Simulated scan of single mutants.
Amino acid sequence: MFILLSVAIAPGLALFSFFYLRNQMATEPRRTLLHTFIYGAILTFPILFLQYVFKEEQIFSNPLIQDILFTGVVEEFFKWFILMIAIYHHVEFDDPYDGVLYGVAISLGFATVENILYLLSYGVHTAFLRALMPVSSHALFGVVMGYYLGKSKFSKKEKVNEYISIALFAPILLHIIYNLIFVLEDHWSYLMIPFMLFLWWFGLRKVKLAHNHLIQHLYAQKKI
């Protein structure tokens, strides 16, 4: 059991460390990040319950609607919603790169608990693919969400609502595309590999832009 938990948790910790250490200009309070991670972990259970109820009650006539659309929309909406009500106005959300860290934290909290439950059900032999795809994709969805939340908080007022909306709908769109590829029975890997490469490129580009915005923000405040 200890080995299984370690294997399930390791990808999330590694990915979070990667994004955390890329922020060389400021250090975000670890306690707030831990709280955000816990929010994401707790979210796993109501979301899985909601998905189970909808599946059992056969709310959607076509099961692919639930697997592709419903799952992506619900997961990303609740992560966005928690960030908006618990983190967005927090005093420690004080620079543009913070959005990336909080987005990654809540996404990896969700992905880590989901990963533990999955490995408990299907075994450790699935851990490698889980780390490469579901866990890392959740982290990158979080990067995109957090980047635009950071943009909205530190942009001109007329851009705030636009960026907040993009922070919700961009991860939803990426998640839906991911789900659509994943449910394809034939040769799905030929589409998933380029999509994951694109997702990493896109996410790392947002990380770089967020870091540049952080430098500009600190310069404007005459902290550097």
Rank of each mutant, 00 (worst) to 15 (best):
S152N: 11
K153A: 13
K153C: 12
K153S: 10
K153D: 10
F154R: 03
S155F: 03
S155Y: 00
S155D: 13
S155W: 02
K156C: 09
K156Y: 12
K157G: 00
K157Q: 07
K157P: 03
E158P: 03
E158W: 00
E158T: 04
E158G: 01
K159G: 00
K159Y: 15
K159N: 14
K159C: 05
K159S: 15
V160P: 06
V160F: 14
V160I: 15
N161R: 12
N161M: 07
E162D: 12
E162T: 14
E162F: 14
E162G: 05
E162N: 12
Y163A: 10
Y163F: 15
Y163K: 11
I164R: 13
S165A: 13
S165W: 11
S165F: 13
I166L: 09
I166Y: 09
I166A: 04
A167Y: 14
A167T: 11
A167I: 09
A167G: 14
A167W: 08
L168M: 00
L168H: 03
L168A: 08
L168I: 06
F169Q: 00
A170T: 07
A170S: 14
A170V: 09
A170Q: 10
A170M: 13
A170E: 13
A170L: 13
A170Y: 12
P171N: 12
I172N: 03
I172M: 08
I172E: 02
L173E: 04
L174T: 08
L174H: 02
H175V: 02
H175S: 06
H175C: 05
I176H: 08
I176R: 13
I176C: 12
I177L: 15
I177N: 03
N179D: 09
N179Y: 10
N179K: 05
N179Q: 12
N179T: 06
N179R: 08
N179C: 06
N179E: 04
L180I: 05
L180P: 05
L180N: 10
I181A: 10
I181K: 06
F182S: 11
V183P: 11
L184W: 00
L184K: 08
E185S: 05
E185D: 08
E185H: 02
D186R: 11
D186K: 07
D186A: 09
D186C: 01
D186L: 07
H187P: 02
H187S: 11
H187M: 01
S189F: 13
S189P: 03
Y190L: 13
Y190D: 10
Y190H: 06
Y190R: 09
L191W: 08
L191R: 02
M192A: 04
M192E: 03
M192Q: 01
I193K: 06
I193W: 12
P194Y: 05
P194C: 01
F195L: 01
M196Q: 11
M196N: 03
M196T: 09
L197S: 10
L197P: 03
L197T: 07
L197C: 10
F198S: 12
F198D: 07
F198E: 07
F198K: 08
F198N: 07
L199I: 02
W200E: 01
W200V: 10
W200P: 02
W200Y: 11
W201M: 02
W201P: 02
W201V: 08
F202K: 05
F202L: 13
G203Q: 15
L204S: 06
L204F: 15
